[in-house]
Design a binder for these strands. Structure first.
Lengths: 167, 167
DNA sequence: CCCAGAACCTTGGATGTCCTAGTATATTGC
DNA sequence: GCAATATACTAGGACATCCAAGGTTCTGGG
């Protein structure tokens, strides 16, 4: 979005916090701000790879999830829970994927309230293609060393468990 | 958004990647996905604290940045660079903060292209109040141990530098 | 058996982010 | 000095996320 800054803006913020008498929380503040920024960078990289396929990250995640599901299908509410996003976000993603012919909705055989989403053959194919591309262009050169990956995985899993994501 | 899941969905995804023959990138994939999810959780906590003040995280960040600037003012493009967001996002945030009487726009004295944004007294006061609240309710109990904070700071700073955020 | 409460999905609204394009002002180069 | 290029901000559009509200279908207790 612009040229590199001469200084780390987050490190500056941490110093500002300390000089204001908030030194006790300056470290966590900086870590959290860094997570926000890192997420933006990673999301931008991912979306750049997915754009040629007409996919966004949200839609890709749903395709990938369905690709690993039995019969390549899931109830909407199950998808919402596993992706950990609001049900309306799933509705939105399915609307667009369905319009693109990548998934199909069908009524649940026994529960009239729930709707099943299933990959079409085209959806299955695209899910694989897009994943291969993401693996090669983003995950293979993530910018994290193997040690970093291990530490991140541990730290963030602890955090997510503590936040109530899973038990 | 829902009850805790019985299993970590990201760990499941990692296993799925491995069983598909993508074991070499399964670790980074899981780390990156965990960053995405962690960012969502943290953002939700922050916005919950800011909501009573009529602020969002984007608007708060701008207020906080101005609070540390000389004269409590900055050119729009400088704010965009330091917050590392698109210029239109700053325009959007300033529009709303200005409507709320928290910041003011003024023309740059020598460069007719640039606009300065400055905190109003109300804006300065709210910035401090909101920060104290965020410190107490989010950063003081971040969910990261002091060791985690150190490791995160190091890993994410390396990543951001490598991504071209700063030198 | 039936109705109240719960569960599931969708619609509509608010916000934020980015991109593209357009307007206005500076700066550069011939 | 003037035209070409670059920079700064803003308007409009596409997407995603969440919340609130509404319609439909289940489930359970009386």
């Amino acid at each position: 979005m612009g040229a590199p800054l001469p200084r780390d803006p987050i490190a500056d913020a941490q110093r500002n916090w300390e000089s204001r008498g908030w030194a006790d929380v300056a470290g966590p503040m900086a870590s959290i701000t860094a997570i926000m920024r890192t997420q933006q960078i990673l999301l931008a990289r991912i979306e750049a790879v997915l754009k040629p396929f007409g996919l966004t990250f949200a839609r890709y995640e749903l395709l990938a999830l369905l690709g690993f599901a039995r019969e390549a299908q899931l109830p909407m509410n199950k998808a919402s829970a596993l992706l950990q996003v609001h049900p309306t976000s799933v509705t939105n993603a399915v609307d667009r994927l369905e319009a693109a012919g990548l998934v199909e909705r069908s009524p649940h055989p026994t529960d009239g309230r729930t709707t099943l989403v299933r990959l079409t053959p085209a959806g299955r194919k695209l899910a694989t293609t897009a994943t291969v591309e993401l693996n090669a262009q983003v995950f293979a050169n993530s910018g994290f060393s193997p040690t970093d990956v291990q530490q991140l995985t541990r730290i963030l899993a602890d955090f997510r468990r503590n936040a109530g994501d899973f038990t």
